[in-house]
Design a protein around this nucleic acid. Structure first.
Lengths: 241, 241
DNA sequence: TAGATTGTTAATCGATTAACAATC
DNA sequence: TAGATTGTTAATCGATTAACAATC
């Protein structure tokens, strides 16, 4: 296996990785909280658009589909902001969550210009979230120079170049399984430290690289499991009843 | 909000939903285990292709990118199979995991024939996992009858029909945000009880419906967070050093 | 003040993992 | 037998959530 070090297993990022700053202040936003912050953000944008300036934990909880205690606990990790008896200031909260999540724009490179890569390059949510796709890379020479979603496709041999030239900070792997490990190695070599992997395979990265995996088929398989136990238990119930 | 009942929050399915069969035997495969079973399966297929007939928990752990204790614990939930001092029989394990996950083929309907919907309809992993896309539905009348990935597009008004006719058990929502809740309501009305939602919005479903959410932008945002804390701490270190 | 809502505590729960007796 | 590996136990850890004092 190339790459060595920690492996991707589709689970949550390394525990104990909550980074502690040199000044001693820590940024231990729990992984579970982190995953909900963008959801809160969408809810807040929604109410802000309606001109609402204050939300209670209860209201935000309803928007996000969680319970109010969780919202308060989550927000307490950003530092406390709400007014007791009143709620949270929408604009302030938006700014604070935005700041915690990184705020600024982070350009993205997509490797793999197949169906999934193309779809992701057109995905509104990425640009809306501050993640413009500034480069698309593929191993197919016939695609070189072709425009996809307003971005010119670069050959994988020139990946380093294009990553540096465009200032990419995040890489998305949307290649077939057999190419994924090599692509990840190249992305790491090019200096990327944050990679999102859509290839359904376990790839290795050095410990300093954050790798997350989105496993589309596995999601369906889990649903299939519940469908299975449901139909099995219905069949048994019929037999019993 | 339409639909009522439990809401989707992108987190793990309802705890306490481990279904207990009428005969008293329970099927409480933990959620975390469930998410790893397909990963084990891929590793097992790989070694089976090499003609290997036995694997240890250690070997399977390496293939899946987890540790051996987790593998043994996970497999113990399916009932014990391994031989002490030897390991697990590959074929038997494949059959057992396959059985636990539902085994048989479950046809899928995709709602939304935009970029993401089209990409998903061509996604190899779905068919390989036993989830053939047998129907694609869209609200755009001009797409009606058009073929995508060998499947004819149906108008959303005829969704019920096509779900029944094709025997779909799983629904995938790949619509814009504004359409998602209505689509989910229609899928539920058409009899589906398992839905995978790609629209970045909280939708409501009745408690008997399993809903999972795949939030593509959120994954990037979490990576963006780590990128942010990394660069911040590097900046502080430079300032300090 | 009285009502509402926060921020925090503490109990609880599920998941992880090292360790080891059982056993092939 | 001796070495290897399982299956299970128990400690630990992080996440969830009800409850409530603090306070707007």
């Amino acid at each position: 296996m190339a790459g060595g070090g920690r492996t991707s297993d589709g689970d949550l990022p390394v525990p104990g990785m909550g980074i502690v700053r040199p000044d001693g202040s820590s940024s231990p936003i729990p992984e579970a909280t982190l995953a909900r912050l963008p959801v809160y953000m969408r809810g807040l944008v929604e109410v802000a658009d309606e001109g609402i300036t204050t939300v209670s934990s209860r209201q935000l909880a309803d928007l996000a589909g969680v319970n109010a205690a969780k919202v308060r606990k989550d927000l307490s990790h950003l530092g406390a902001h709400g007014k007791r008896g009143v709620g949270y200031d929408v604009d302030r909260l938006l700014a604070e969550i935005g700041g915690a999540l990184g705020g600024s724009v982070k350009p993205v490179v997509i490797v793999g210009a197949g169906n999934l890569g193309r779809a992701l390059s057109r995905y509104d949510g990425f640009i809306a979230g501050g993640f413009p796709v500034v480069a698309i890379v593929d191993s197919d020479r016939s695609l070189e120079g072709q425009e996809i979603s307003g971005v010119s496709v670069t050959h994988v041999d020139r990946m380093d170049e294009v990553v540096v030239a465009t200032g990419c900070r995040l890489g998305i792997v949307a290649t077939p399984v057999h190419a994924a490990q090599e692509v990840v190695d190249r992305l790491v070599a090019a200096g990327l430290r944050s990679i999102l992997n859509f290839a359904p395979v376990v790839v290795s990265v050095p410990p300093e690289v954050q790798l997350r995996k989105v496993d589309l088929a596995t999601e369906l398989q889990i649903l299939g499991y519940y469908e299975h136990v449901r139909t099995s238990s219905e069949a048994s119930e019929q037999a019993a009843g």
